[in-house]
């Protein structure tokens, strides 16, 4: 790896601390609470998944963390320092790959380095290694319209990582992909996370994806948006979707999200609680 942008050693940076974060919108004179008292501590190098039904404020939360929206109450600290505005220490991959159609793949990735004080040579090296990291070598000069959805999202991941952020936010990055590409990219994400050793926060509405990737699952509920549960995933590092423990955890999270009807809940323990 060429020299990293931050000098702090990896593994120590990337601690994110949310304290009493709330956000309200004014809609037609009425106040709408989107987030209420969100508290969350993400350790360096952790992979955490935030799940919740649409409207629970999970994407809003990411917008606050990335710094696109400064209108909130509470504190957001990265490595004990309050965040202000956007910063290259915090990278993001949107659901829409958001590649600029007039730039080739490598220029899209390189755009992230536009405001980084590195020599052209170092930038070229960084871009090349990150395109390689996401498995797109050979497509450097392709324009976005020539890429498939999965490839475009890989390129967006490379752009998110090329600045060597302390923390990478993933806002439903695989939501628009077909099932097969999605599973492939989930494995890619895990591999990248292990290589880069950075903190990752994944927002998704797919519970299986959340469990497959996360060390921790944070469940959010809507009206107002809040954290309803924080679960440590105690499964082996390489997870099997068909594993009994995996499925049990999935049912548990789904129940927390209020996604299961009475008949789905099953199991004597739950039946007893209902009656």
């Amino acid at each position: 790896m060429p020299q990293s942008i931050e000098t702090k050693p990896a593994g120590q940076r990337g601690q994110l601390d949310l304290r009493h974060v709330s956000k309200t919108y004014d809609v037609d004179g009425r106040t709408l609470q989107v987030l209420r008292d969100v508290n969350l501590m993400v350790e360096p190098g952790e992979f955490i998944s935030i799940v919740g039904a649409s409207g629970c404020g999970k994407s809003t939360l990411l917008r606050l963390i990335i710094g696109l929206d400064a209108d909130y109450q509470g504190h957001i600290l990265l490595d004990d320092r309050p965040i202000s505005g956007t910063s290259l220490a915090r990278g993001i991959v949107f659901q829409d790959p958001c590649l600029l159609p007039w730039l080739t793949l490598q220029d899209n990735v390189a755009l992230a380095l536009a405001s980084v004080p590195l020599s052209e040579r170092e930038k070229t090296d960084l871009v090349r290694t990150h395109i390689e990291l996401v498995g797109l070598t050979g497509f450097e000069r392709a324009y976005p319209h020539q890429l498939s959805g999965g490839m475009a999202q890989r390129a967006a991941i490379a752009r998110g990582l090329v600045t060597r952020p302390e923390i990478l936010l993933l806002d439903e990055p695989l939501g628009a992909l077909d099932a097969l590409t999605r599973m492939r990219l989930q494995d890619e994400l895990l591999r990248i996370w292990e290589t880069e050793k950075i903190t990752m926060i994944l927002v998704t509405h797919d519970v299986e994806e959340a469990i497959y990737l996360g060390d921790r699952i944070v469940v959010m509920q809507a009206n107002p948006g809040r954290i309803s549960r924080d679960i440590n995933v105690e499964l082996p590092p390489v997870r099997q979707r068909t594993d009994a423990a995996f499925i049990a955890l999935r049912q548990e999270v789904l129940a927390d999200m209020g996604a299961l009807s009475q008949s789905d809940r099953g199991g004597p323990a739950r039946l007893r609680r209902v009656s």
């Binding site: 696109l68 990278g91 958001c98 600029l100 755009l111």
Partner: peptide, 27 residues
């Protein structure tokens, strides 16, 4: 708007934003 957000996330300067995003986008 998503390109405007992107420019903020990538901390582009005003001039970089104009040259790399606004001009080609409006072209």
């Amino acid at each position: 708007q998503k390109y405007v957000d992107l420019a903020k996330v990538l901390t582009l300067t005003r001039w970089q934003f104009t040259r790399r995003i606004i001009i080609p986008g409006a072209l």
